[in-house]
Every structure is written in structure tokens, then in C-alpha cells.
Design a protein around this nucleic acid. Structure first.
Length: 363
DNA sequence: GGAAATCTGCCCACGCAAAT
DNA sequence: ATTTGCGTGGGCAGATTTCC
């Protein structure tokens, strides 16, 4: 059981982590200003929103185990705003725990593929254009899914050989100045052992980032259908054949045991480089174009996915083990109750129930 | 031109995500 | 915790294209 003890190093809530949380409250104050400005400019009521962001992380809840000298950092009150970095991370973690078990199960029967679908950048801070683009993308994806599932068909083109049974799509919008780049990261579940031989080169084969690459006929097909549907054109064998180039899309097999990495990647926050400096214009465009938009959506057998199991007991069991072990080692463990105090307590170990749980699941 | 093929739009109830 | 509303699968009707 020594192993469980060793885990504690990794699941420890470090002082750096707490500093991050506090820093983020600073970052949130910029967001807060943006919301206030938006409220004034647009004459809309955002009081609830503003209050909850203001309150984000202001109250921390802990489980206190006096005997074991552990305070379990259970949760804080969160604003759940899509621009809040803390809440973004929390959401990702919960999604991960929600989807991974189902993907894992699916992997027994199907191979999983990481699919990226892009459209041309949307230029300018006109959010109506971006809203329209995203709507079209979702509609096109539904259509693509219908084709793959054989609910709708294209004459003389069959997808049966791929045994596509469903997928998940995740919307990401990155941006640089006033150029927005919406795209979908997806996971397709298809036939186990499916070989997609990559034999074709086109203009998307050459990129600064990835060097050169070839595409499979499946990828070429997806690229073209994706372009036709997004441009509102009819999808037929002829229109596909006549189209010389589609939109940039890729389909890559997810290697064993890395599927959850892909999922992490899928849902990671937008535009890492820009994160520390989002302009008000960017904020406004993203606010309107992502409002009420579902970032993640399942299709086919992945439609209606949700967490079914209850892990509470499992966590309790693991937790007790850890606590026993700590007692045995007679380790000096203690924590404090509020962020400011936590920062002063350099030698204390704070562990998080949530973290224990998610960490152990990955082993 | 007319029939057959098949594509598109629209509707529904439902279940979950987002909002409050 | 509860309400609101988005987006699905599935199915049908009507539009559009294809083929003779």
C-alpha cells in the first residue's frame, strides 16, 4: 500500500495552486470590468452574472478530519462563467470523469478516431457572422453524422464499411486580433481494426507546424462533404467529384490508452497564447457567439451520454486507506481554512477528494 | 415531359446543458 | 434546485434532381 502513499505527492494541493486561484481572481476582475462595460453599452442586465463572478472562490468548503489532521479541500463556490479560468478547469475535469468511462467501454468494441473539422477564419468583430458560422457548422455536423449513420444517404457513396456508430464533437474558437477561428474537435467511433491508408496529398498536406502529411480517401471525402455542407451546397457524388479541394479536416486513429489525452485536448481552453490578454472586442464577440451554445454534443450511440455510476463509496474507501496510511507514518499534516491562511502554511499537506478520485481513476 | 430517386426542411417529444 | 431552451433521432412531405 506504499503506492497510495506515494500518490499523495501528486494529488497534493500545492501552494502554487492556491496562488493560481488567487491570481485568477485578479484575472476575473478584468472579465468583471468587461461585463460591466457590456452591461452599460448594450443596456442589458448582467447583475446576476457580475455578482457570481465577483463571488467566485470567495467561500471555501472543507472536510475536517481532526484526528487524521487532514482538511479536505472539497469545493469552493464557483461562478461557472465560461470566461473564468478556474471554472473552465473544473468543467473540464468533470467532463473528463463523465466521458472517459464511456469512451473506455466503447474502445472494447470500436476504434476511436480524433477528427478535426475546420472552416475558413471569420474576419472582423462582427459577432453575427461568427454566430452564423457556428450555427452552420452544427447543422453541417448533424448532416455529416446522418450520412455516416446512414440516416440520409448520398447516391453511389456508402459509409457502411466504416461501421461508424457515433461521435462527440467539441467546439473551440481561437482568435488572433480580429480573426476568429472556429473549429470542431471530434471523436468518431468506427470499426475496430479499420485501416485508413494515407495516400493522397493536397494543399493541406503542407503546414509549418506538422510538416507534410498525406490523407486517406476517407479524409478527402470528409473534407469535401464538410465544405459542401458548410457552403450550403448540395452533396452528391457529382458535386463531391467536381470539387477539387474541401476544407481542412483530419482523421487520426487514437492510439490505445491515449484516448483520454485526446479528450483533454479536445476540451482544452481556447487560445492559450492570448489567454492573458483578451481584448474587450474579443470578449464581446465570444460572449454573444458562445451564448447558449453547447460546446459538447454527442451523436449516435454517444447521444445522451451521462454519468451513471456513483463513485462516492469508492472514494470513501480509497480515502480511508490513505488516512490510515498517514496515521501510520505519523506525518505532520494539517491545513488551514481560507486561501490567505493556506498560503502561509508551507509545510502542510492539503489533499482534495476530487483530486484523489480523478488521479486514481487514471491508474 | 414524367416518373423515380433522393435531397431538404420541418415537426415532434425528449433529455440534457445552460441559465437563473 | 428549478426553469428554459437547444439539438437530437426519426419520420414524413414536398422540392429538386436525375434518368429515360
Amino acid at each position: 500500500m506504499i503506492k497510495i502513499f506515494e500518490l499523495l505527492k501528486d494529488i497534493q494541493v500545492t501552494n502554487d495552486f492556491i496562488k493560481d486561484v488567487i491570481n485568477n481572481n485578479g484575472y476575473n476582475s478584468i472579465i468583471l470590468d468587461y461585463y460591466k462595460r457590456l452591461e452599460e453599452e448594450e443596456h442589458i442586465d448582467l447583475t446576476n452574472k457580475i455578482n457570481s463572478i465577483d463571488d467566485c472562490n470567495s467561500i471555501w468548503t472543507l472536510d475536517k478530519y481532526e484526528l487524521q489532521k487532514i482538511k479536505d479541500f472539497k469545493k469552493t463556490n464557483l461562478c461557472k462563467d465560461k470566461f473564468c479560468n478556474n471554472c473552465k478547469k473544473v468543467k473540464q475535469a468533470s467532463r473528463l470523469s463523465q466521458f472517459v468511462p464511456q469512451l473506455k467501454k466503447l474502445e472494447e468494441e470500436f476504434d476511436l478516431f480524433h477528427v478535426t473539422l475546420t472552416v475558413p477564419n471569420v474576419e472582423g468583430h462582427d459577432y453575427n457572422k461568427l454566430i452564423k458560422t457556428i450555427k452552420t457548422m452544427f447543422k453541417s455536423y448533424r448532416k455529416l453524422n446522418h450520412y455516416l449513420m446512414d440516416i440520409e444517404s448520398i447516391k453511389d457513396i456508402s459509409f457502411k464499411k466504416y461501421f461508424y456508430v457515433g461521435s462527440i464533437r467539441s467546439l473551440e474558437v481561437t482568435y488572433k486580433n480580429d480573426s476568429y477561428h472556429p473549429h470542431l474537435h471530434c471523436i468518431f467511433a468506427m470499426k475496430k481494426g479499420l485501416k485508413l491508408s494515407k495516400r493522397f496529398k493536397n494543399t493541406y498536406s503542407y503546414s509549418k507546424k506538422n510538416g507534410t502529411r498525406s490523407f486517406s480517401s476517407f479524409e478527402i471525402l470528409i473534407q469535401k462533404i464538410w465544405r459542401l455542407t458548410n457552403e450550403g451546397k448540395k452533396v452528391t457524388k457529382k458535386s463531391i467529384d467536381d470539387l477539387e479541394i474541401g476544407y481542412s479536416c483530419s482523421v487520426d486513429k487514437i492510439e490505445d490508452e491515449h484516448y483520454f489525452e485526446v479528450f483533454k485536448y479536445m476540451t482544452k481552453s481556447n487560445s492559450d497564447d492570448e489567454e492573458d490578454f483578451m481584448s474587450y472586442d474579443n470578449f464581446k464577440v465570444l460572449y454573444y457567439s458562445l451564448k447558449s451554445v453547447r460546446q459538447i454534443q454527442g451523436y449516435g450511440i454517444l447521444y445522451n451520454l451521462k454519468e451513471k455510476e456513483n463513485y462516492e463509496e469508492e472514494v470513501d474507501y480509497l480515502y480511508n486507506k490513505i488516512i490510515d496510511e498517514l496515521k501510520e507514518k505519523e506525518l505532520p499534516i494539517e491545513v488551514m481554512e481560507a486561501p490567505e491562511d493556506l498560503l502561509k502554511q508551507n509545510d502542510y499537506l492539503i489533499i482534495s477528494r476530487k483530486k484523489v478520485f480523478s488521479y486514481l481513476r487514471q491508474l
